[in-house]
């Protein structure tokens, strides 16, 4: 369960690493050494900082980001209106599904918003049915009809 994380004070080096590594990590034999060289630091210093930022959850992951739709799967945003008294129980039920890639609480009558990622298109319907059965609450799927823009890169 990921609590909302407080902002942390980042060193200039950590900022440089985050800004340099939001994409384009090389497929070379020694990619960390190659990136470290462009930042003017040693390979071990880069690896140490990446480990430290993963440990403190400044980074949630380091590695490839997948677009499941390009391998025949589906991503679908879905929402639920969960009564406050049941929120924690429903949250645990929803998060228990491996198909739930991320989940946010939002301030609205629809207070739970999650993304389902499945390997096959049919997996979405199965996951929705499972959540509705487990929680007894309706799930509102919001499949994207058009994607106009996606570029989740934030300057550190």
């Amino acid at each position: 369960m990921t609590e909302r994380q407080a902002p942390v004070t980042l060193s200039d080096l950590d900022r440089q690493i985050i800004n340099a590594l939001q994409g384009g990590f090389p497929l070379t034999d020694t990619p960390y050494a190659d990136v470290a060289a462009t930042l003017g630091i040693s390979e071990s210093a880069l690896l140490d900082r990446l480990r430290a930022m993963l440990d403190t959850r400044v980074l949630t992951r380091f590695g490839p980001m997948f677009q499941v739709e390009r391998m025949g799967g589906r991503f679908v945003l879905a929402a639920m209106a969960v009564p406050e008294a049941q929120f924690d129980v429903v949250n645990a039920q929803v998060n228990a599904l491996p198909e739930v890639a991320h989940n946010y609480r939002r301030e609205h009558a629809f207070n739970m918003w999650f993304v389902l990622a499945t390997e096959t298109p049919g997996g979405i319907d199965a996951a929705v049915a499972r959540i509705e059965a487990d929680t007894g609450l309706p799930v509102y799927p919001f499949p994207k009809l058009k994607e106009y823009f996606v570029e989740m890169k934030l300057k550190a």
Binding site: R4, Q5, A6, P7, V8, L10, I17, I18, L21, Q22, G23, G24, F25, L27, T28, L50, M53, T56, R57, V58, L59, T60, R61, F62, G63, P64, M65, F66, Q67, R70, M71, L154, A156
Partner: peptide
Amino acid sequence: QRRMARLLERGVIRRIGAVPNHYALGYV
């Protein structure tokens, strides 16, 4: 490396890199 390059080309891998926690970066 060859397979990952191919997956990148096909867009199965969107990119390889760091996924920051945007709260930690101050985007609260």
